[in-house]
Amino acid sequence: MTITQLHYVLAVAEYQNFTKAAQKVFVTQPTLSMQIQKLEEELKIQIFDRSKKPIELTDVGRKIVHQAKNIVNESDRIKDIVDQQKGFIGGEFRLGIIPTVMPTLLPMFLRNFTNKYPKVKLKIEELHTEAIIEKLKDGHLDAAIAATPLEQENIKEWALYYEPFVAYVPPSHPLYPNKKLNVDDLNIDQILLLEDGHCFKEGILNLCKTNKTYEESSFQLESGSFETLVKLSNEGMGMTLLPYLHTLDLHEKEMGNLKMFEEPAPARSVSIIFHKSELKIQIIEALHQIIAGVIKGAIAFQNVKIISPLHKK
Rank of each mutant, 00 (worst) to 15 (best):
L127D: 02
H128W: 00
H128E: 12
H128Q: 07
A131T: 15
E134L: 11
K135C: 03
L136T: 01
L136Y: 04
D138K: 15
D138H: 06
G139E: 06
L141Q: 08
D142S: 02
A143V: 05
A143T: 02
T148P: 03
P149H: 13
P149Y: 13
L150S: 12
L150V: 05
E153W: 00
E153T: 09
N154D: 14
I155S: 05
I155F: 09
K156I: 15
A159E: 14
L160P: 02
E163V: 06
F165Q: 04
F165E: 09
V166D: 05
A167M: 10
Y168V: 14
P171D: 09
S172Q: 14
Y176P: 11
P177L: 07
N178M: 14
N178L: 15
K179V: 10
L181V: 09
N182L: 10
V183S: 11
V183Y: 09
L186A: 07
I188H: 04
Q190C: 07
L192S: 02
G197V: 08
C199M: 11
C199T: 13
K201W: 02
K201I: 01
I204E: 01
I204H: 01
L205V: 13
N206E: 10
L207N: 03
L207K: 00
C208L: 01
C208M: 08
C208K: 00
N211D: 13
K212M: 13
T213C: 01
